[in-house]
Design a protein around this nucleic acid. Structure first.
Length: 695
DNA sequence: GGAATTTAGTTGTAGACAGCATGTC
DNA sequence: CTACAACTAAATTCC
């Protein structure tokens, strides 16, 4: 099907724009979507492989919708994906389609979101916007759910189905387009959504899957399994691909493995890559810690590792360099499998097992493997893609072949049933006024995927949860169930009700808490990510006893919660070092974390401090002032005395400390002692600061 | 005697959304 | 119920 045939649906302007992008013909699955009613107004589930043109299907549907005066919400699982899609969709502004973005990090201006025709968000942000009654939400006429198979995710899948249920309730004629990887029960999702199902295994670039073991590769080609000769180790397989001018993506199961393999391969890669010293330098701009040095060493020779311990700009840098074909090999943890689109000629899945607590090491899911394998083959560059699992012996290789290559991905099952998710969403359903009786709440949940998949009634579970919320003072029920003021606040802050309760109790019980006590308080919360305790972390225990009298909670040594407490306390100590201006690299090595981890912990703490401040305020507790100040310090990683300086643009924790030590404590001082400041942080920076703040 | 190598024992394990108001080294 | 790679310390061999 030629795109010209789409004129009547998406206008000739849109068709022209597609042609400018080099799209003149639809891929078979795209054609099928059109044939099956993409422009007819019905709901659709599109379950096709990665890179087979899902996004374009959504774009066509959205343009069609916008032309008819509709407004589209496009939800994705990651902030990085949100900005990727935003950049992509913004091209439509040439024909007058306004595109906006809203994530925790980055918002288009509010009034703009009201005008936008297409809004890209993460599913959590979308839910939060609904909770905060963003005016434009009720104008949404079409919802696109990208990566809809993530409904299966235990941590974050529930949000997706609840969001669908809420938006459908707000606008019963809402059109839904769900984009999913190929899964065996896509029909269930389609039936739940009352949608037309388009399924296909078609790929623009053929994918060959196989298993490597020393000396040979078992390959699955059209028809059957064949055995071909190969090198004796992974290095030689990598080398072979490089020789043919291809790039390699290797998936490992741990950061450590990814890093050491990238380092090992850098000596092989250097013969095939141009000099990347400039990139290596760029890696070190914001951080010169151990991990960054290691990454820089690899990148210099065109090899790299990629995991959540990297700083975001480092990740983007590596991704960009790989796309530009400067970096030839990336050894990644599963971050990259679910993240932004980064295809390679050859994908090697080395970490086929993963450690799970209580389970020892277990095989990863077939669907996870398929996700990784699907990254093989670059459209326009490779004529085929190849995915290889690494096995040790022939027997193992055959086993891997059967389990993964020939295996079927797991069914997607709803994870909404777990108590914490139900509690979280029940409060929001009450606070938003979607339901105010037990029956109403039950009725609401009966429209979720969870209810579709499970026959049994949720009545008792819901009743228990409402009772719990009532006990915590978040809802009142006398005939009808309504949210209290604080319940409504907690729903809007998007925190776990249990976090809200912990904060509320603190506001009730204490009027004076030390820095350490406040830091530990947020670490006691289920919303906080905790650091791990290593064997060599006995010092944490000693520190804990030093702070014993300050803390709001300190279990007995014999308590079952003692180890968990130490993790909370270790995390709090880390934040304590951060707000006391301990150097980032020193913190990282002391706590055994990477720079990206520190940033994440800090970011989460910042968010929770905001919530704590609001709850303290609501209680009329004077501590809210302290909390606000500490929150400010966490944001910038400084002691109290630097807060004023650090509010200035271009002045961070390091420059502020230099200035302060020289007696420059405010903008006025900076103006007065300009020459001193210039000597300390450079003339250009001072100029910038002053330019920014001259009023 | 001291370095080099083998062996036994120990350690540690993926990822990332949310508020609010604007920006580092 | 499960692993395993990487590191460290101890034991053994080699020069």
């Amino acid at each position: 099907m030629q795109v010209d045939e789409l004129k009547e649906h998406i206008s000739s302007y849109a068709v022209e724009l597609l042609k400018e992008r080099g799209i003149s013909k639809l891929y078979p699955p795209q054609e099928e979507a059109v044939r099956r009613g993409l422009f007819s107004g019905r709901n659709m589930v599109i379950a096709i492989p990665t890179a087979s043109g899902k996004t374009l299907i959504a774009e066509l549907a959205m343009i069609h919708e916008v032309i008819r005066g509709g407004k589209c919400l496009y939800t994705v699982p990651l902030k990085a994906l949100a900005s990727e899609k935003y950049r992509e969709f913004r091209k439509w502004s040439d024909i007058g389609v306004e595109v906006g973005i809203s994530t925790g990090d980055y918002d288009s201006r509010d009034e703009w979101l009201g005008n936008a025709d297409i809004i890209v968000t993460t599913s959590e942000k979308a839910d939060s916007l609904v909770r905060n009654q963003a005016g434009w939400i009720r104008n949404i006429s079409m919802l696109v759910i990208d990566e809809a198979h993530l409904i299966d995710s235990a941590k974050r899948g529930a949000v997706i189905e609840v969001l669908v249920a809420k938006l459908r309730k707000i606008n019963p004629s809402l059109r839904i387009l769900a984009l999913s990887a190929t899964i065996p029960n896509a029909d269930e999702i389609a039936e739940w959504l009352n949608a037309e199902l388009v399924e296909s295994e078609w790929r623009p670039i053929p994918l060959y899957e196989g298993v490597f073991y020393p000396g040979k590769i078992l390959k699955l080609n059209e028809g059957g399994v064949i055995e071909v000769k190969a090198g004796r180790n992974v290095e030689s397989v990598v080398k072979e691909t490089l020789e043919e001018g291809g790039q390699v993506l290797i998936f490992e199961s741990t950061r450590r493995n990814a890093e050491s393999l990238a380092e090992k391969l850098s000596s092989v890669v250097r013969d095939y890559a141009e000099d990347c010293s400039d990139l290596a330098e760029e890696v070190l701009i914001e951080n010169e810690g151990e991990m960054s040095q290691r990454l820089a060493r690899c990148v210099r020779y065109g090899s790299a590792f990629h995991h959540a311990g990297l700083l975001n700009y480092q990740r983007e840098l590596i991704e960009r360099a790989f796309r530009e074909r400067r970096v030839k090999v990336i050894c990644a943890t599963p971050t990259l499998a679910a993240g932004v689109n980064l295809p390679a000629r050859r994908v090697i899945v080395k970490g086929i097992r993963r450690y799970e607590s209580g389970m020892g090491s277990v095989f990863i899911k077939v669907s996870e493997y398929k996700q990784m394998a699907g990254r093989a083959g670059r459209p326009g560059l490779d004529s085929y893609g190849e995915a290889l699992i690494v096995a040790k012996t022939r027997n193992e290789a055959v086993e891997m072949m059967e389990r993964f290559v020939l295996g079927e991905p797991e069914k997607v099952t709803s994870k909404l049933g777990s108590e914490n998710h139900l509690r979280f969403h029940t409060l929001s359903v009450i606070a938003e006024g979607i339901a105010n009786t037990l029956e109403g709440i039950e009725d609401f949940f009966s429209s979720t995927f969870f209810a579709y998949q499970n026959e049994f009634t949720m009545r008792w579970e819901i009743q228990r949860i409402v009772l719990q919320l009532e006990k915590w003072g978040f809802v009142r029920s006398d005939g009808t169930i309504v949210a209290t003021e604080i319940g409504d606040l907690i729903s809007r802050l998007y925190i776990d009700p249990l976090t809200g309760y912990i904060f509320k109790e603190a506001a009730r019980r204490f009027d004076n808490l030390t820095e350490m006590a406040l830091l530990h308080l947020i670490c006691r919360t289920p919303d906080m990510e905790l650091l791990y305790l290593r064997k060599s972390d006995e010092w944490v225990e000693e520190e804990a006893y030093a702070f014993r009298d300050e803390l709001t909670y300190f279990p007995s040594y014999y308590s079952s919660e003692y180890d968990w407490f130490l993790r909370e306390f270790k995390t709090a100590l880390c934040l304590h070092d951060w707000v006391n201006e301990r150097d980032e690299d020193v913190i990282c090595s002391k706590y055994g974390i990477a720079p990206g981890d520190l940033r994440r912990v800090v970011e989460t703490a910042e968010w929770l401090f905001h919530a704590l401040e609001r709850i303290m305020e609501h209680h009329g507790n004077g501590l809210s002032v302290e909390v606000g100040r500490l929150g400010e310090r966490i944001r910038h990683g400084v002691r109290e005395e630097l807060v004023e300086l650090v509010k200035l643009k271009w002045i961070g924790r390091k420059r502020a400390r230099k200035l302060y030590n020289a007696g420059i404590k405010s903008l006025d001082d900076l103006v007065e002692k300009r020459s001193v400041a210039e000597r300390l942080i450079g003339k250009r920076i001072v100029e910038r600061v002053l330019a920014e703040h001259r009023r």
